[in-house]
Design a protein around this nucleic acid. Sequence first.
DNA 1: AAAAAAGATTAAACTAGTTTAACTTTTAAT
DNA 2: ATTAAAAGTTAAACTAGTTTAATCTTTTTT
Lengths: 209, 209
Amino acid sequence: MFFHKVTSIFLHKMNKIKAQPLLNYIENFISLTDEEVDILLQNISFRNYLKGQYIAQQGDVCKSSYFVVKGCTKMFYLDDIGQEHIIMFSIENWWTGDLGSYIAQLPSDYHVQCLEPTQVITFSYEDREVLFEKIPKLERFFRLIIERALVSTNKRLVRNFSLTAKARYIYFKEQYPEIEKRIPQYMIASYLGITKEFLSKIKRQLLND
Amino acid sequence: MFFHKVTSIFLHKMNKIKAQPLLNYIENFISLTDEEVDILLQNISFRNYLKGQYIAQQGDVCKSSYFVVKGCTKMFYLDDIGQEHIIMFSIENWWTGDLGSYIAQLPSDYHVQCLEPTQVITFSYEDREVLFEKIPKLERFFRLIIERALVSTNKRLVRNFSLTAKARYIYFKEQYPEIEKRIPQYMIASYLGITKEFLSKIKRQLLND
DNA sequence: AAAAAAGATTAAACTAGTTTAACTTTTAAT
DNA sequence: ATTAAAAGTTAAACTAGTTTAATCTTTTTT
């Protein structure tokens, strides 16, 4: 009994350390009391993936939403002719998982795969609902971050309509220099909605300017 | 004094009737008590626009978010060469306004213009914050609807990457038959990210199938 | 009813981006 | 160190969608 208590306190402290990036991130939007942090820690879990491993798969219900603590993932759609369309990359302090599948608990349209060894914090659908009940402030937190995500997706949509591939690539390089270094070119091409060959051509053009 | 009270009750009842579509819409996500409905009504306002009128303009801070009770609007981006890129149409029971400008209270990238005489309910930034304080459940409501909006924008982004213009048009027609009837073709072309001439060509192709 | 304005169509010339296929460079595995 | 696999480049032929410009149709205004 005593031993169990010590172990549990120890584990709790470990988890608090591992969750620190998430706690810092949350602190940008709302403030949590120590008790609330404890409740939060009891309703999330930690998981590590290897490079290449799938966090979620097209066709399966996306049971959790994932906060990336360390590493890098891609979320992509595999179309009828087997082509991969990258929807987003997620690095440290960003989220991944198919929100559509998660909120409706329906089969997902997308795969989520690790491009590096990746450490995530998972919010299962059920646990998140429990958290909303116990800490209503978290509704605000998620509202705020989802509002921001919607704004950036809208802006990306507009860029895809109004900019050429070259301008989109320049924008990407400026906006996400770290991501550009960590990820193969052919995936960046997919994210930009062009072929790897054409991205190669654009890069050569930029060198000649 | 008595007269004033009667007037105010009368106005309140009027507003409740006018706000009914919004109240029904909210009821799909959360339940409000009568008192909460009263508070809500005190923190929203009603406005009518003529066809062609601008609800919001590129460059101005978007001070409110708008729920469309009746009518139809387009939100669009005007690029460097004066071309219009339609981001979304909003009809009855949908929202409009530049969320990015609204949440950050920064100048907007988009115009919002009425395509028909349009009746909206406006949520000013300040009043919405008051509402969140007085009715925390509304955080949940807005989280839920923004989650849904993000999912549909993501899906649209994927369609723009993975489908041809023809397939996108077919999808649009199937998904939004009412919108297609109410809006000129050249605006639908803009929404789909193609020229009106090419949409014309696609329509002829579809007739010949 | 006539005139004007707005929207839709057609077709030819063009271009941004794709496809295919061969080749080079870099990274990972033995 | 060698080999294999993965990633990146090049170039020619191609195509989905654009541009320009003229014409036709529908709607709105007077």
